[in-house]
Design a protein around this nucleic acid. Structure first.
Lengths: 249, 249
DNA sequence: GCCGATTTGTCCGTATGTATC
DNA sequence: CGATACATACGGACAAATCGG
């Protein structure tokens, strides 16, 4: 079942994207939208705040809701970015940006237990884990590698073949678990000897390093992952909105 | 005046950060919080959704609101990231992460007009602009440069000295304008000859390129900026939350 | 497996405050 | 000053998920 605010969000978004509400114009006022959609004021507001968070509109107090979306041909579009603001598997990301011919190779896959190393500190000590190390190859080049510490119970029964296809797909479709929140940290670090050994980075001095921690439907940590990859495959788009909180802090 | 949901957000956040509500625990239920704070449940819900967006909690349907925040010593904290999810000036960012001794040098600052080049396409053709090119130097090294196309009216009267201190500070404090929305696109590109000429990048093959577009209080584009910088000064943290929208699209 | 209590999720209608024009 | 528009807040109703008995 689709929520009312989702439907309104999607409809308004497509009207913005197809030019019905062009860049720099004002949307119909809240009260007009309320009567158009036959819903409550708060419902329209939720849809509008979602559009604002995604960079489609910006509400202007006392004036209206300004459309700030314009199609971009120059820089990579939001939808074509390598790293999305959503939670998706590598496979899903590749399909989204239209790179079909990628393969994944599992280097190692072994059970272990969370000790008190700083790397695994977010896991409770003693938690059974599975460590999966993989390499991503596209167009014959190894451009990305990752080391993944997954909570054992959430990937119970996973085989190497499953991990080669998609760990996220296994968690979601086979295990029926959700991935709800993902915290990420992006940095650019000098390539290590191990990077040069495993990846085709040639004359590239640095690699993109993404640390991510994913939480399941219960809000419990289930994945702790480090991805190291060639810089040329990395793009990321984001919309920042001013909040008064930080100005007070 | 501070909104009620802001106060509740700040209070709950500090209670989470100081360990009163530790990692993996559940917050008091909505109804308890409502009676504690003496407000309506929608107000509490707004605070909780802000905490969720910032990666502090994750609500679990029918169960409670799980705390997913833990202090990190290993990877860069959210507050220590170079590029924040807020809208701030370079000067503010440097103060936040504790790098005091930085200087800014204005290379060029000249008026121009938006033509039909793809770079300036987001501006209406004919819009008066000011182009400012600057270099950031810290610890004696030129590590970042940027080319900024600002709408002329929003930086009216700005001098080279103002631009050397902070363009954002001039816009906000002198001109009294707000910067509300900022769309950014991050990529890693090979360093150009011009990069090597202006920056101290030595044996580094790539630079971090940030394209950003900022919108003023009226929701009108007022800044179009390209930043090119040394990889070693770049870190970015972000929290992604699963939305059903993308799964339907 | 069912039932009831608890908790979050969605939605409604209303009232008031505040900025813009 | 009045009309319009967004911002905040309240209180209530019902749905849906979870959990324990």
């Amino acid at each position: 079942m689709q929520a009312a605010y989702d439907a309104i969000y999607l409809q308004l978004r497509s009207l913005i994207e197809n030019g019905t509400y062009p860049y720099r114009s004002l949307l119909p006022s809240e009260s007009v939208l309320v009567s158009q959609y036959g819903c409550a004021h708060n419902t329209v507001r939720k849809s509008l705040s979602m559009l604002a968070a995604d960079g489609y509109v910006q509400p202007v107090h006392g004036k209206g809701v300004r459309v700030i979306y314009f199609p971009e041909t120059n820089s990579p579009l939001q939808s074509q970015c390598f790293l999305s603001t959503e939670i998706e598997s590598f496979r899903e990301a590749m399909q989204r940006i239209g790179i079909g011919n990628t393969t994944t190779k599992v280097l190692t896959m072994q059970e272990c237990v969370a000790d008190d190393s700083p790397l695994l500190a977010p896991y409770a000590k003693g938690t059974p884990l599975v460590n999966v190390e993989r390499i991503r190859i596209y167009e014959g080049q190894a451009l990305s590698r990752e080391s993944n510490f997954l909570r054992a119970d959430i990937v119970e029964g996973m085989t190497k073949a499953d991990a080669e296809y998609s760990v996220y797909h296994y968690i979601r479709s086979v295990r029926g678990e959700k991935l709800v929140t993902c915290k990420r940290c992006i940095a650019i670090e000098p390539a290590t000897d191990r990077d040069r050994e495993l990846l085709d980075i040639d004359d590239t001095s640095h690699v993109v390093v993404i640390h991510s921690r994913a939480f399941d439907g219960d809000g419990l940590l289930c994945e702790l992952c480090e991805t190291r990859q060639h810089p040329k495959v990395f793009t990321f788009c984001q919309t920042a909105i001013h909040s008064r909180i930080h100005s007070q802090k």
